[in-house]
Design a protein around this nucleic acid. Structure first.
Length: 300
DNA sequence: GCCCAGGTGAAGC
DNA sequence: GCTTCACATGGG
């Protein structure tokens, strides 16, 4: 029997858990990951840690670009660059914004806020859970849901990663019961989430197909779900399917439009909807996210 | 205690 | 069409 080799081959291999993404324009990770479009990112000593699909990943600024570290080796990175939308010509997006005082103020406040391209199911489910909840609470509910129903993801023996869970699949949630979902503190939203999971799991709602549909059709399909109205549908269109003209009108964005564009006037909702639909150009959804971020963070 | 939160559906006019 | 209200829970 030969013994163990005296000299072990040196592992000279690239680090397939690390990727550096060079960028040509601003990318503010905190504003992007922590401002109410995705709900599973948290800041650790190593950087912004979260889960994309079945990948645990940690992101941090690296010069002008982003450094990504995954918990486990990966063979390709398209899932990450797609999620982060790092190939987008961001300066072109900024050029399409209306040149008015509110947009200038929002851009002066934050220049690197981006829109993510999220998984449609996770996005839909998360925003079903979002109604009349503060962002911190949405995060808590989503984390609880993942802990209870998501597939476990192991952590490597390196700093920055802890064991975590994937976002639960529609099939898994479809066979949950309402009481179990309510134990994740989602309250009256439980039957809505359950109905959505069952509709997707049964193939009645084909989320993959919606991305190839005209936006108005996709919106109408989503709004057939109980608990999904115009705002949640628009969030899914914008954050998951990348329909860039979708303009979610929530309490904050309405507040921003009223205060910044029509100060001191009583403007009804119908007029504001019309303004939102016509004023902001081909990347209106992007502009919306800037107004949302600005009005939430700047005290008047 | 009170008000509000990345809303929606149902009931009332 | 528009307005009002309940819904479940927790942060500030």
């Amino acid at each position: 029997m030969p013994g163990a080799p005296l000299i072990r081959p040196t592992q000279i291999q690239p680090h397939p858990t690390v990727l550096r993404i060079p960028l040509e324009s601003d990318y503010d990770l905190e504003a992007t990951l922590n401002s109410g479009q995705a709900f599973r990112w948290r800041l650790t000593e190593q950087g912004w840690t979260g889960v994309i699909g079945h990948h645990s990943v940690c992101l941090r600024p690296d010069g002008r670009g982003i450094q990504a570290r995954t918990a486990h080796p990966v063979s390709e990175w398209g899932w990450l660059t797609d999620y982060l939308q790092t190939d987008l010509n961001f300066d072109e997006v900024l050029r399409t914004f209306p040149d008015d005082a509110p947009m200038r103020a929002a851009l002066a406040w934050c220049r690197g806020l981006r829109l993510l391209r999220q998984d449609p199911w996770e996005c839909l489910a998360s925003f079903i859970l979002s109604s009349t909840k503060q962002i911190v609470q949405i995060r808590q509910i989503v984390e609880s849901l993942c802990r209870h129903y998501g597939e476990p993801l192991s952590a490597p023996d390196v700093p920055g990663f802890a064991p975590t869970h994937a976002f639960p699949s529609p099939a898994r949630l479809a066979c949950a019961d309402e009481a179990g979902l309510r134990s994740c503190r989602m309250g009256f939203r439980a039957p809505y989430l359950l109905a959505a999971a069952q509709s997707v799991a049964a193939g009645q709602l084909d989320l993959a197909r919606l991305g190839a549909s005209p936006p108005d059709d996709a919106r109408a399909e989503l709004m057939r779900l109980p608990g999904v109205g115009p705002k949640i549908a628009d969030c899914v269109l914008l954050f998951a399917y990348g329909f860039q003209t979708s303009f979610p009108l929530d309490v904050w964005v309405l507040r921003a439009l009223r205060r910044l564009y029509f100060p001191g006037r009583r403007i009804n909702l119908t007029l504001l909807r019309g303004f939102a639909a016509t004023h902001f150009g081909p990347y209106a959804g992007y502009a919306q996210q800037y107004l949302f971020h600005y009005i939430r963070n700047v005290k008047d």
